[in-house]
Amino acid sequence: MNYEITRNAIDIQEVIDKVISRNAGAVTTFIGTVREMTYGKKTLYLYYEAYETMAVKKLEGIGREIKERWPESITAITHRVGKLEITDTAVVIAISTPHRNDAYEANRYAIERIKEIVPIWKKEIWEDGEEWIGNQKETVAYPKGKPEEKEIYD
């Protein structure tokens, strides 16, 4: 299972181990962590929610997109949900490739795609309130009701 949603603390090494290969010359990891200050506002903790079955499917889809672009890559992604404290790890992406440049590029691609198409939401909890993050300013609209083709496949 290279693509997982978990309620528990993520074991980073366990995610890395899934992509270790004799053919790999590089492994990149992206570790998304819970930040305390966002534009001057102090977060107490975060709460992540996922549409879990679909989120796993979408992570697998991102894995397929990466495989098409970097055929020799191996990808593993684990995203945590539930209550996360400041400095906790929310997501780990590990990608191995024969050469380092591809491993960096593919990893960047993976996190950007997660932020576009994987049904996971975070709520920031502050001292004086809380808010689901995503589109409070309505800067993103989906007139067709789903991401544009380029958002899905680009």
């Binding site: 998304g32 932020k115 994987v118």
Partner: peptide
């Protein structure tokens, strides 16, 4: 059917 607000994972 799932109604999916703009996502904010990662």
């Amino acid at each position: 059917v799932a109604l999916i607000p703009p996502v904010s994972g990662g």
